[in-house]
Design a protein around this nucleic acid. Structure first.
Lengths: 217, 217
DNA sequence: GTCAATGTGTCAAAGATTTAACAACCAATC
DNA sequence: GATTGGTTGTTAAATCTTTGACACATTGAC
């Protein structure tokens, strides 16, 4: 039934296309060729055409791509044509930062709940969103349809909470805790944001750069 | 002079090895085989051996890898044997979240400065780090050796600030702003953390999952 | 309406990454 | 100190990804 599995390498590039097309749209550009776009984005035109063709032919020979249409289509591919409700578990700085990020709402990601265990935070609101205690989780999930749970709490508690959420029917986890979640249900979609890993990668490249400079002297 | 370029695909996996080896170390495990590790990490043993061999032979036939030694060596590869000073530009929730993240310090990443343009934040301290106004940037960078600048401010200002930092001699940028930085110096190392992109990837996989479930009914 | 210019979709080649296979080596036991 | 079992480093094959090339459709100028 599946058309054909599309590699995650391709998927990783789609949000970037979406962003560039959005910028072009804002700038009033009506049409664009893969060649023109490739120069702006610093990738090959071939890659752009190949990537887009995974999802069907959005362009027209001799014309290029209609910016508005392509932007919309990529939006659909990424699921941005539907709203996604998010709850954030862990209302510390990071959790609150996510709640304050207005950009997400424009993409259809609505943060509708914040949870924590710290009684000092009970009832505090962040951009109109009330922080609730974790024991209200079950009731809240019963009342609202939740698509995504963002985990921004210490890693020690991540597995337990994640599986509690899975038990409540949540199918997607945006994981900021620095562990690989071990979930009871293998069908749950997990996207990890491991800031330490990102920092270590940066560090590797710094050291590499240093070595290269030393060697070229 | 360069030994051999190591692909970023390999580098991306190194922090994860580092983390697992750290956990094993804490658990008191002395030695581990690529096979055992591969099962814990859910990758192939072949990949582990191949990855590690990019940097030299850390193991011993018939024995495996010494956990402590390998952990240290990967640390060195990732540049964790030296301290890195970080300044954060943008002392909003995200900037403060980074400043509060104690984990980074244990890896040698020291956040020593926070900068913002909001006068209401002037002089406020986060975990002992004083928030400074952006016009103090030049003086601060003159007094301290800065390795990394983390950009957690709105994307509109990112390019200007980034190039100002590059002008001050900073060679690495940890970019949380949702733009591709256009830098005057191509030798600067940039590591992007695009949370929106990550969320869109998650969204794609949610929609994909939905489709698959529908099709299998 | 014709024709040159443009630019996609697609196929094939090149390149990169991952996996499998195995020889060479070490550890541990007897 | 020989022998068995275990495990690496490394080579080769398989797979996946990216790039290049071009047939063919469409546009726009005249």
């Amino acid at each position: 039934m599946q058309e054909k599995e599309i590699s995650q390498a391709v998927i990783r590039r789609m949000p970037r296309y979406y962003r560039y097309l959005g910028d072009l749209l804002d700038a009033g550009v009506e049409r664009i060729s893969s060649n023109d776009l490739s120069q702006r984005m610093n990738v090959t035109a071939s890659q752009i055409r190949q990537d887009l063709n995974n999802f069907g032919g959005f362009g027209q020979q001799g014309y290029g791509y209609n910016v508005k249409y392509l932007h919309e289509e990529i939006g659909k591919i990424l699921g941005l044509n539907q709203k996604h409700n998010i709850i954030v578990i862990g209302a510390g700085n990071l959790g609150q930062a996510l709640a304050n990020y207005v950009k997400f709402e424009r993409l259809g990601f609505m943060i509708i709940g914040l949870f924590d265990v710290n009684p000092a935070l009970d009832g505090v609101t962040v951009r109109g969103i009330r922080i609730r205690m974790l024991d209200e989780l079950e009731a809240f999930c019963g009342e609202h349809h939740i698509d995504i749970a963002a985990l921004t709490m210490p890693k020690e508690k991540a597995d337990a909470i994640a599986n509690r959420l899975v038990g409540l029917g949540i199918h997607a986890i945006w994981n900021f805790a620095h562990v690989d979640l071990e979930l009871i249900d293998k069908d749950v979609v997990v996207e990890n944001v491991h800031l330490s890993d990102s920092l270590m990668q940066l560090s590797y490249n710094i050291v590499k750069n240093q070595r290269e400079k030393e060697n070229s002297r």
